[in-house]
């Protein structure tokens, strides 16, 4: 059905789970297909040191979520906003018939925007 690398990420996602006392979390949903992605982040010195996810969706959704977290770790809170859905898509090889499904399964941009908005809100509150 899917290639080995997608199945491996689906079976053993490195970044699955949640971060206790996360600095922020945010989620996004694809209304059309029902997929949901929630990401938790830990930030130190303005840099994301850890990112974990929870996802409701197909193996493609879980694979894309894991890659999204991988890409976020190590970036600054500004740089992370530069991650595009197309960056995630480029890392996942699928058959042509699954291409549209893959695009619909990637919720990176919306979720990162949500989690960083929450982070900035919390920071603003703390700085008051």
């Amino acid at each position: 059905m899917y290639n080995e690398s997608i199945i491996n990420k689906f079976l053993e996602p490195k970044n699955a789970g949640r971060i206790k006392n996360a600095d922020a979390n945010g989620s996004a949903k694809n209304e059309k297909c029902g997929d949901v992605l929630k990401i938790f982040i830990a930030v130190e010195n303005d840099r994301i040191v850890d990112a974990k996810f929870k996802a409701f969706g197909s193996p493609l959704t879980i694979c894309a979520a894991d890659i999204t977290c991988e890409k976020m770790i190590g970036l600054t809170t500004e740089e992370v906003l530069g991650i595009k859905n197309s960056d995630i898509e480029a890392e996942i090889l699928v058959a042509d018939e699954d291409r549209e499904k893959l695009r619909q399964s990637i919720l990176a941009e919306e979720t990162i925007a949500s989690v960083m908005a929450e982070y900035n809100k919390r920071q603003a509150k703390m700085n008051k």
Partner: peptide, 14 residues
Amino acid sequence: ECIDGEALMCLLDM
């Protein structure tokens, strides 16, 4: 509830 059928189908296939 709370899980995707296709994800379950893949896991069961394994």
